[in-house]
Simulated assay, not measured.
Amino acid sequence: MDMATTQRNPGTDLTPEWFDRIAVNTPAAERRASSLTARRSLKKEWQAAWLLNAVRCIDLTTLSGDDTPDRVARLCAKALQPIAPEQLAAMGVKSLTTGAVCVYPTMVEAARRALAGSAVPVASVATGFPAGLMPLDLRLAEIRYARDEGADEIDIVISRALVLCGDWSALYDELCAMREACGPALMKAILATGELKTLTNVARASHVAMQAGADFIKTSTGKEPVNATLPVSLVMLRAIRDYHDRTGFRVGFKPAGGLKTAKDALNWQVLMAEELGRDWLRPSLFRIGASSLLGDIERQISHYVTGRYAASSRLTMG
């Protein structure tokens, strides 16, 4: 039995020799990412099936300053019924939910109430999201608060300055402390790749996060000027593959920010399948951080089932 299917990533000692000689060729990464998505065409029932898979991997997210318990409850209702029942029935699917609902720590309790009795997990951002520029003890306290409120998963942000300075030991120590604070909650480490300057930094930070015990590595907060891109994702997936080859443990991947269309959902799944294999295309190893993406997927599913695009008023309430 693959131990990674039954055990979380426990992390390793900090092992710089696994990553300190990495030097990513940016033009080559861009060409590879572009060619992968260009040569795979998904049509008709195949496209519809891949879009439904994308839905079950979405972390449906609200991270706005004006979030309220009612808004969170509405989002949770959408997570529990993201696609209209009659459309699922037409495709031979009995039920479907999103992968999780992601909120701020103070909204975790509201999400827990709204999702009570379901298997949809609650994810919470923490550690001074999105910048992470808070003292470490306060960041750890925020993790513990979210966990105690009932969060099943914690999306933490790393200290970008430690990456830019190459202080891998300090970054590893912070992430280990965060992993411990998460306890049984899964830790998704947000690298904020748009602020790490180079793909080489992205690759090295990915390795450090996994060595510190991250269950997922995530591209972005969604608040940076540049969020998830295919070349960045390619580099992170290669790091995940290398870590799995070395340790036998599978780490999940979450692109976030900038994925807005059904085509985006297909492109990222193609990249996952090509680089890591279809075993990674499930919610335990792949999530998409999104708020507006689901609307376009709903439109495409409606078109597949009925032959026409539904009016926005006919779609699941957002």
Rank of each mutant, 00 (worst) to 15 (best):
R179P: 11
A262Y: 07
L60G: 00
S159Q: 14
M187T: 06
N267W: 12
G289P: 05
G257C: 02
W268N: 02
I22V: 15
T247L: 03
G213C: 07
G166T: 04
N227S: 09
S220N: 06
A110Y: 05
D70M: 07
N53L: 08
D167F: 01
Q87M: 15
A38V: 05
I143F: 00
E109D: 13
A209V: 04
A123P: 05
E45D: 15
K94P: 04
R21D: 14
P85C: 07
G150R: 00
R250F: 11
A23V: 13
N201D: 09
V122F: 09
A146W: 04
R74Y: 09
V55D: 09
R112I: 07
R40G: 06
S312F: 11
L136M: 10
A205W: 12
K263V: 13
P10H: 05
V270A: 09
A239L: 01
D152R: 01
R314E: 15
A214I: 08
D245W: 11
L315M: 00
A119V: 10
G277P: 03
T12A: 01
A239K: 00
A290C: 01
L293G: 00
C182E: 01
T6S: 10
P82R: 06
R40N: 13
M178G: 02
K197I: 14
A100W: 11
G183M: 08
A73R: 13
R112M: 07
S312M: 12
D67F: 01
S233C: 10
L196W: 12
L51W: 06
A131H: 13
A262S: 14
C76A: 07
T229G: 00
V122H: 07
R160T: 13
T106D: 15
I240N: 07
M187N: 05
L140D: 10
A310R: 04
R40K: 15
M317G: 14
R39D: 12
S41A: 10
D70F: 04
A131Y: 07
R71V: 01
K43L: 13
A214G: 08
M187V: 02
M134N: 14
R139V: 00
I297Q: 00
T200R: 02
T97R: 11
I217Y: 12
M134K: 14
V226T: 15
T261Q: 04
C102Q: 06
L171A: 02
D137M: 09
T12H: 07
Q211N: 05
R246Y: 10
E142I: 00
K263F: 09
P135G: 03
A79S: 09
R299P: 03
V202E: 13
A192Q: 11
Q269G: 06
N227D: 14
A192G: 12
I190G: 04
L138Q: 15
D13A: 15
A77C: 12
I190L: 06
A273V: 12
K94C: 05
I240Y: 06
R32W: 03
R56M: 08
L191A: 08
L60M: 01
L115H: 05
A49G: 02
I143S: 00
